[in-house]
Amino acid sequence: MKLTRFRLLLLVTFLTSTKVLASDATIISDTALYERPSIASPQTLFAKAGTPVTIVSRAGSWKEVNIADGSLAWVRSYKVRNGTIIITEKEKDSGGFFSGLASLSRKASGLFSSEKKGYSFQRTATIGVRGLSEEQIKKATPNLAELRKMESYRSSRKKTQAYAQKGKLKATQLAHLPRSEAEQ
């Protein structure tokens, strides 16, 4: 009896509010999925924002994903983001653009150790009203002490190269891309 009531509760929760999706990545915007990493290849599926996927491989600006039903397809890289998300049905249907992306990013950055309390702006609140709204930029007066402080953090070539090596960053030669029409 107890078990049945528990099952019923579980079912009701599942149907009415949120879905907890367990996967290592999520589709963040409604998108077509392709057979190969090219928009010229046939479209195989259409995925809604919030669809859980597993990233299998990557080619340029494309990611190959495994969808829950086991099928493989290619999607534009930026339309998939690492992480699992709790997404409401309402959010899922809200125009196909995942509005919770910013909170997902904030969480992924690791800067927030809990949902409510982040890396706060309170620590310098004593200085007064600060910010970079249009009005505040226009009224800004030079802060030379802060400039000198900023310059004290400047890195040296040697230190930077050691840092890059530690992060396994390899410098490569690459020519600049041609101008797009937007720049003409």
């Binding site: 310098t124 200085i127 600060r130 802060n143 030379l144 802060e146 400039l147 900023m150």
Partner: peptide, 18 residues
């Protein structure tokens, strides 16, 4: 840049700045 720093100072965290 000192003008922009006048509008918003650096975050007080040496490690982040480095």
């Amino acid at each position: 840049i000192s003008g922009l720093l006048g509008a918003a100072p650096l975050v007080e965290d040496d490690r982040l700045q480095q």
